[in-house]
Design a protein around this nucleic acid. Sequence first.
DNA 1: GGGGCTCGATACATTGATGTATCGAAACAG
DNA 2: CTGTTTCGATACATCAATGTATCGAGCCCC
Lengths: 212, 212
Amino acid sequence: MSSTPKPVTRRRAQTRQRLVEAAREVFAREGFGRSTVEQVCEAAGFTRGAFYSNFTSLDELFLEMWAQESASLLARLQDVAAGGAPKVKDVRAAVERVLEALPVDTDWFQITSEFTAHAVRTPGLAQVMAAREQAIQEALAPVFDLLLAQVGRRVTNRVALGRSLVAAYDGTLAQLAVEPASKAVRRHRVELFTLLVEHYSEPVRPRRRFLL
Amino acid sequence: MSSTPKPVTRRRAQTRQRLVEAAREVFAREGFGRSTVEQVCEAAGFTRGAFYSNFTSLDELFLEMWAQESASLLARLQDVAAGGAPKVKDVRAAVERVLEALPVDTDWFQITSEFTAHAVRTPGLAQVMAAREQAIQEALAPVFDLLLAQVGRRVTNRVALGRSLVAAYDGTLAQLAVEPASKAVRRHRVELFTLLVEHYSEPVRPRRRFLL
DNA sequence: GGGGCTCGATACATTGATGTATCGAAACAG
DNA sequence: CTGTTTCGATACATCAATGTATCGAGCCCC
């Protein structure tokens, strides 16, 4: 089922990588749909021959780029989970730490939104999309377990929390992309996340009912 | 500043409209970036001559389509606000009524996400985008004022509520597009909206503290 | 109901992107 | 260091899309 039965070597890996990085720029500048193989190759400093030796289509390259970006996002999340950072003291601080690990650049926003749109109309890709979302939710879970434990709370509804956070992340990312400079939007994002986390978690040993 | 100094007539308006509707299909099928003038014309039953007589580029058509879709969404919201529908009896019912007025189809999802991505990299369009978001938030306000009044509540933080709802709408729209069949996602959407509305509103005459 | 104007169809020239087939240089193994 | 393999560059043939210029039918107003 591996789609790349290529006799991979060192050189190959390097140029593949350069192509992917160049594509990132081009996609951001032109949009995925409008980008051409030539533009990508020019940005990478290669000719089209190099491209077709490594990929069969822009779609394929796009898929690899997506995989890389997703992996890096997950890795950063797991760093937070494993990290020996100083303890957080409230939910808001926990949220802030997690948000710092997530990319907010407009490039990433475009990539995700165009990929999602692309995936929705390309049957096989919808699964990839769904799988990624689940992976993110699963990576998010231990992070919040750890951080919430530091402030004496535990998650009450994992699934709902995961879904909410992903939705909030996507939704606010769009707002940030449109108004990148706005501090207000950024602050509101923290507030929204905090609300969600507090709603779907509870103190470990609830002192009294009315303190809920 | 009007970009269409065209001697508009009846015929013109009709073919423009058909072109826009055809483009909607084509964009959904191919994606905006991948669509060509020819494809749109073929779907509309016109030749390219007709197209260039009405628009100077696909971008321009896209903009008009966006304007129409946005207007129709706003109109539906205002219908809900003005409507003589039976009163809602709790926040959840209010949320359900509002969500019914909002489009959830994948076509709409693609249009919005591609437009947003497009707007982000096209300087002038970011303003259009921001303006639309504000318009939606402003249209949303009276709707919730009315519905919340029916259940004896009032909004405490308009701006935050508006931003949250738009973010939640966008975020869950993506989830619905990826998993259109999922009842769970749909239910979660209602839950999320309800949570936000309850958090950013309060009972009009709070009976007792502990009932909060 | 007829004359002038509008709009969409046709035809054309041009550009640009695609994918493939071939060749030479650089990488790698022994 | 040498033979072999691998990869990227070059060149080619093809196809598709663009935008414009022109023409004629239909619409609208008087």
